[in-house]
């Protein structure tokens, strides 16, 4: 999965436009807020800083266009609280 290598050293956070166009379809990922334990892993690990934390610390998809579907978030969620709408 080529996108995996790109994750290792992101050149500049959101310079490269992701090849997914979310304006037409659903957001890049959906979050199960009841299962999310606000552990902050997804927010911290996302190479494109797609998430911001709400006042409870839960992830909010605030920069969807930057999402490259690299899977770092949902592969690292210990509580299965994130799933991609595209992969």
């Amino acid at each position: 999965m080529s996108t995996m290598q790109a994750v290792a050293e992101p050149t500049s956070a959101r310079a490269k436009k992701s090849k997914f166009d979310y304006s037409q379809g659903p957001p890049p990922v959906r979050i199960n807020l009841t299962w999310c334990k606000t552990c902050n892993i997804c927010i911290a690990l996302c190479p494109k800083k797609v998430f911001d934390a709400d006042q409870d610390g839960k992830p909010v998809v605030s920069h969807p266009d930057a999402c490259t579907q690299c899977a770092m978030c949902w592969m690292h969620c210990p509580d299965f609280a994130i799933t991609s709408n595209y992969r």
């Binding site: 334990k37 552990c39 892993i41 592969m75 690292h76 969620c77 210990p78 299965f80």
Partner: peptide, 10 residues
């Protein structure tokens, strides 16, 4: 919250 066990489980 954040425990690696859940990551291994998935």
């Amino acid at each position: 919250p954040g425990c690696g066990n859940g990551i291994v489980m998935s």
